[in-house]
Amino acid sequence: MLIILTMVLFALALSTIVMFISSLLSKKTIIDREKSSPFECGFDPKGSARLPFSLRFFLIAIIFLIFDVEITLLLPLVVVTKLTFIKTWVITGTFFLLILLAGLYHEWNQGALDWSS
């Protein structure tokens, strides 16, 4: 019991000493306050809340989320078709991919994927 208590006290003392030394050696400047402030979508949280938001950035982010979710829905189809080769799964996966590609083609035609304009 005495050995365990000694080890716990040693660990506590060592961790306290290391934290104290790191706080003494660290740089504490006003610039560090900027680093510890929240960062949301490239906006300065201390600035005006009425800044215009890039609609192009928003559309690209939404398209990314949609395709990301659809890819996570497609991954189990690969496992299912390897385990059991059922025509229903193949037809479902192909239909899902066709809808996905049609949506991508539509977004491309509308210019939503063109970042430069």
Score class of each variant (00 low, 15 high):
residue 1 M to K: 02
residue 1 M to R: 01
residue 2 L to W: 04
residue 3 I to C: 05
residue 5 L to H: 06
residue 5 L to I: 03
residue 5 L to M: 07
residue 5 L to C: 08
residue 5 L to V: 04
residue 8 V to S: 10
residue 9 L to Y: 06
residue 9 L to H: 04
residue 9 L to R: 03
residue 10 F to M: 06
residue 11 A to G: 10
residue 12 L to A: 13
residue 12 L to I: 07
residue 12 L to S: 07
residue 12 L to K: 00
residue 13 A to D: 00
residue 14 L to M: 12
residue 15 S to Y: 06
residue 16 T to V: 00
residue 16 T to R: 00
residue 17 I to P: 00
residue 18 V to N: 01
residue 18 V to D: 03
residue 18 V to C: 02
residue 19 M to P: 05
residue 19 M to C: 12
residue 21 I to Q: 01
residue 21 I to Y: 05
residue 22 S to V: 04
residue 23 S to C: 03
residue 24 L to F: 13
residue 25 L to P: 00
residue 26 S to D: 12
residue 27 K to M: 08
residue 29 T to C: 06
residue 32 D to V: 02
residue 34 E to S: 02
residue 35 K to P: 05
residue 35 K to H: 13
residue 36 S to R: 14
residue 37 S to A: 10
residue 37 S to M: 04
residue 37 S to T: 00
residue 37 S to G: 04
residue 38 P to M: 07
residue 38 P to F: 15
residue 40 E to K: 07
residue 40 E to W: 09
residue 40 E to S: 09
residue 40 E to H: 10
residue 41 C to H: 10
residue 41 C to N: 07
residue 42 G to L: 02
residue 43 F to M: 09
residue 43 F to E: 00
residue 45 P to T: 00
residue 46 K to Q: 08
residue 47 G to D: 07
residue 47 G to H: 04
residue 47 G to N: 02
residue 48 S to E: 12
residue 52 P to R: 05
residue 53 F to R: 10
residue 54 S to M: 09
residue 55 L to N: 09
residue 56 R to N: 07
residue 56 R to S: 07
residue 57 F to R: 04
residue 58 F to M: 05
residue 59 L to W: 15
residue 59 L to R: 12
residue 62 I to P: 02
residue 65 L to R: 01
residue 65 L to S: 06
residue 66 I to H: 08
residue 66 I to P: 07
residue 67 F to Y: 15
residue 68 D to V: 06
residue 68 D to T: 11
residue 68 D to I: 04
residue 68 D to A: 15
residue 69 V to R: 03
residue 70 E to Y: 14
residue 73 L to A: 13
residue 73 L to N: 12
residue 74 L to I: 05
residue 76 P to D: 08
residue 77 L to V: 06
residue 77 L to N: 14
residue 78 V to C: 09
residue 78 V to Y: 15
residue 78 V to K: 04
residue 79 V to I: 13
residue 80 V to I: 13
residue 81 T to W: 10
residue 82 K to S: 13
residue 83 L to G: 12
residue 84 T to H: 08
residue 85 F to Q: 13
residue 85 F to S: 14
residue 92 T to S: 11
residue 93 G to I: 02
residue 93 G to C: 06
residue 93 G to K: 06
residue 93 G to T: 01
residue 94 T to G: 15
residue 96 F to D: 06
residue 96 F to T: 06
residue 97 L to T: 02
residue 97 L to Y: 11
residue 97 L to V: 04
residue 97 L to P: 04
residue 97 L to S: 08
residue 98 L to D: 11
residue 99 I to Y: 07
residue 100 L to I: 01
residue 101 L to G: 08
residue 101 L to I: 12
residue 102 A to S: 13
residue 103 G to L: 14
residue 103 G to A: 11
residue 104 L to K: 01
residue 104 L to N: 01
residue 105 Y to L: 12
residue 106 H to L: 15
residue 106 H to N: 03
residue 107 E to M: 12
residue 109 N to P: 00
residue 109 N to E: 11
residue 110 Q to N: 05
residue 111 G to D: 04
residue 113 L to D: 12
residue 114 D to I: 09
residue 115 W to F: 15
residue 116 S to G: 04
residue 117 S to N: 07
